[in-house]
């Protein structure tokens, strides 16, 4: 919807009493919506901060940025309770933030510091915050998928009402682990939602070159679960589809597969020279389909924030990022004498 259309919707509503606004605005209060927007900005700013730190040689190792995919992490997060769980991927910074991680401890991990979520042992690809239900990013493509199904099995057996969301990419759906895990989740009707963030490429390999089916959602059919393809840059649509799937899971009706169509703006990782896609394609997504700009337009159109309000959120995010980087820089490195700590459970 363009801005004029939205104004018309509002007028029509006033006349008829019906609420034709998108799901997000019908379902959530203004505070929740503002917080969701803030998280999207925080993700983007975290990624930019990480990239900048990397370029300045402050970190060694690699990183996978999710700029352009913010709506999927945050939209999914909107449908989850605090005690629900997620498994994440190598491109997992956004998932962590959406699930409530603090950026300062994420930066600390990225910088390899003792104050990081993994005490500097894991780095970008392994950030986890189990206390917030984030069971962790993963360096192995598809590695988190069976783990999510295992967490769902626990939720069912323990009767704790938790739902597990399993994030993975379009590339991961060609791993054996994906197929085995979906099948078992389905035969046991487990409370898990499989969320495929389809950004069009697994590294350099396009979906068309790697995946036999036209959509990833239709693979759900082989495992007798619902599968839907959703505009992953539409925060409201993501939140709505996830909420449906989460309720289904919570009601004991079993797993679902949601395919979120999105795009990663940056290269796959630091080694990427973008030889497999065109500049026009990248520009198109950046200018025509930026999830942040899209939600900003809605926030203004539906009267949640005005331009000054948007600016205030931007400023507070910038401050939080700056403080987070400073915290990470000042934090101590792990003591090399502790090299063999945490390999086994201490005191066991």
């Amino acid at each position: 919807m363009g801005r004029e259309d939205k104004a018309m919707v509002k007028k029509a509503e006033a006349a008829t009493g019906a609420d034709n606004r998108p799901f997000l605005f019908r379902r959530h209060d203004a505070g929740t919506i503002r917080e969701a927007y803030r998280k999207m900005l925080l993700i983007r700013a975290f990624e930019e901060g990480a990239e900048n730190a990397y370029m300045r040689g402050l970190v060694h190792g690699t990183m996978h940025l999710s700029i352009g995919q913010e709506a999927s992490a945050v939209g999914v997060g909107l449908a989850l309770r605090d005690d629900d769980q997620i498994t994440s991927t190598h491109r997992g910074h956004g998932h962590s933030i959406a699930k409530g991680a603090e950026v300062k401890r994420m930066f600390a991990e990225f910088f390899g510091k003792e104050t990081g979520y993994c005490r500097g042992r894991g780095g970008s690809m392994h950030i986890a915050d189990v206390s917030k239900g984030n069971l962790g990013a993963n360096g192995i493509v598809g590695g988190g998928i069976p783990i999510a199904v295992g967490a769902a099995l626990s939720a069912r057996r323990l009767g704790n009402g938790k739902v597990v969301v399993c994030f993975f990419g379009d590339g991961a759906n060609n791993e054996g682990a994906f197929h085995e895990a979906l099948n078992m989740a389905a035969i046991w009707k487990l409370p898990v939602v499989f969320v495929c963030e389809n950004n069009g490429y697994g590294m350099s390999t396009s979906q068309a070159r790697a995946t036999a089916s036209a959509t990833i959602a239709e693979r759900a059919g082989a495992y007798a679960m619902p599968g839907r393809t959703i505009d992953g840059n539409d925060l409201s649509a993501v939140a709505e589809a996830t909420e449906d799937a989460v309720s289904r899971a919570r009601n004991g009706e079993g797993p679902s597969l949601i395919e979120l169509k999105t795009y990663r703006w940056r290269g796959h990782s630091k080694s990427d020279r973008n030889r497999y896609r065109t500049k026009e394609e990248i520009d198109h997504w950046m200018t025509e389909n930026d999830p942040v700009k899209r939600i900003e337009a809605d926030l203004v159109a539906f009267g949640i924030l005005d331009e000054a309000g948007l600016d205030a959120v931007r400023a507070s995010v910038a401050e939080e990022i700056e403080a987070g980087i400073a915290f990470a820089k000042e934090s101590p490195s792990p003591d090399p004498a502790d090299l063999e700590r945490f390999v086994y459970t201490e005191g066991a």
Partner: peptide
């Protein structure tokens, strides 16, 4: 190699 997975932090990584 030390009896540990390879750590991320560069000093620990070297020490491993």
């Amino acid at each position: 190699g030390a009896e540990t997975p390879i750590p991320y932090n560069p000093d620990l990584e070297k020490a491993a």
